[in-house]
Amino acid sequence: MKVVVDEDRCCGAGSCAMVAPEVFDQREDDGIVVLLDAEPTDGLRATVREAADLCPAGAITLGDA
């Protein structure tokens, strides 16, 4: 699984960091998404999918690794 984030679209709601803190964090100065792991392991598939689904700004795109 490959994860891409769009910092310009991100609105800093933090859903991704809540659901999958192993993969997503937020910048210290403005709360915008930080991608910690662009190719998370299979064990994280479900939570990363949920994070992408919950993202209100559509800032997380998933693809095949």
Binding site: C11, G12, G14, A17, M18, P21, D25, Q26, R27, E28, D29, D30, G31, I32
Partner: peptide, 15 residues
């Protein structure tokens, strides 16, 4: 909206 919202987002970040 984004310009202003981003000024106050950090204190509400999850961590």
């Amino acid at each position: 909206h984004a310009r202003l919202r981003r000024m106050v987002t950090a204190p509400f970040a999850v961590r």
